[in-house]
């Protein structure tokens, strides 16, 4: 079953009178449990595609359909709800809230959804254990290394048990050791939890942790490669 599909997805900007096309009528279909890596040179539209799939940006034309419903037909509130409960985001620069503790950062989507956070205590403990940071729950992001911050961002993305994880250069800011650990963690999440993951990356090596590699050129998906074994 297709979890996400994009139809004739187009994004363009006007610079003066000239139209600059970032995405050119992209069609794609992603099934549950797939781990997609989108690759391509800088400025090709990888991140734009990712943000459009996550409902963080609106297309110039075309549509993104999540579980059978188009973003175009949803209100801002519904999209927000979808973002906090159905999807999880991980960014290159971790983007944690600097004045909240590790624990509070992880619980942020729950808080925003008005959930009783005491009901999710076990879930948070489980995630902290999963990312190996049980002893750092009271620290603030400034007190953590890059790799640790990215683990917190991953836990935050998982707290709501979302169907889809969207990763924008998740190891772009990490050293190779931390990067490898994080990619292994994503692979584990994909396999253990059957989460659908879509990542944008420049790294061929990290792309190989996924199940498919989508290569983009000039705003279009140029090729799809299945990653073997």
């Amino acid at each position: 079953m297709n979890l996400i599909s994009a139809k004739k997805l187009r994004k363009s900007y006007f610079i003066g009178k000239d139209e600059s096309i970032i995405l050119n009528d992209v069609d794609l279909e992603i099934s549950e449990g797939e781990f997609i890596s989108i690759m391509g040179p800088s400025g090709v539209g990888k991140s734009t595609l990712l943000y459009l799939l996550g409902g963080l940006d609106t297309p110039t034309s075309g549509e993104v359909i999540i579980s059978g419903k188009s973003f175009n037909d949803m209100k801002e509130k519904e999209v927000s709800k979808l973002r906090r409960s159905y999807m999880g985001f991980v960014f290159q620069f971790y983007n944690l809230v600097s004045n909240l503790s590790v624990e509070d950062n992880i619980m942020l989507p729950l808080m925003l959804d008005g959930k009783k956070i005491r009901n999710y205590k076990d879930r948070v403990d489980e995630l902290l254990c999963y990312i190996g940071m049980e002893d750092k729950r009271k620290l603030t992001p400034r007190e953590l290394s890059g790799g640790q911050q990215q683990r917190v961002a991953i836990a935050r993305a998982l707290v709501y048990d979302p169907e889809i994880l969207l990763l924008d250069e998740p190891i772009g800011n990490l050293d190779s050791k931390s990067g490898t650990e994080i990619m292994e963690l994503f692979q584990k999440i994909n396999l253990d939890m059957n989460k659908t993951i879509i990542q944008v990356t420049h790294s061929e090596q990290s792309a190989r942790y996924g199940t498919f590699i989508y290569r983009m050129l000039d705003g279009e998906i140029n090729s799809i490669e299945e990653v073997k074994g």
Partner: peptide, 16 residues
């Protein structure tokens, strides 16, 4: 700006 954008990215609506 970044913090508010982040909150939006994890599901905070404009209204909230």
């Amino acid at each position: 700006k970044r913090e508010l954008a982040l909150l939006s990215s994890v599901g905070m609506s404009n209204n909230t």
